[in-house]
């Protein structure tokens, strides 16, 4: 286990998540893609911490990433519920007018 290998795995997770976030039509599946991207970020941050500067304070960065993931998930579920309730939409293609 080296920094390079950890970063390679993190890059793979991030890229797979990016594919999902771009390609999926269902809102919940898009959220899963974003989660997978943040999964890669967590692994990369842990790798940087462990292999470059393993000072105890560095763990705080990981906590921030996990918090970001929590916020993304909660707001994503909130927006998905609102979309479903207001226009019976569960696919991104059914809400393209929101970008205008």
């Amino acid at each position: 286990m080296t920094l390079q290998t950890v970063l390679l795995v993190a890059a793979a997770l991030f890229s797979v998540g990016l594919y999902g976030a771009i390609s999926q039509q269902v809102v919940v599946m898009v959220m899963m893609g974003l989660e997978l991207m943040l999964n890669g970020v967590i692994l990369a941050a842990a790798g940087f911490w462990w292999f470059l500067s393993p000072a105890p304070d560095g763990q705080v960065l990981l906590l921030v990433v996990i918090t970001a993931m929590t916020v993304e998930m909660a707001m994503g579920f909130g927006v998905a519920t609102l979309l479903h309730r207001s226009r019976d939409a569960d696919m991104t293609d059914m809400a393209t007018d929101l970008s205008q």
């Binding site: 970063l7 890059a11 890229s15 990016l18 594919y19 771009i22 390609s23 039509q25």
Partner: peptide
């Protein structure tokens, strides 16, 4: 249920190549 799967795949592979190179 996917849209523009090929484009998304290209973006993902390109991103992985850049990150892995770095």
């Amino acid at each position: 249920m996917v849209h523009s799967a090929k484009g998304a795949l290209s973006v993902a592979v390109g991103t992985f190549a850049v990150l892995a190179t770095g």
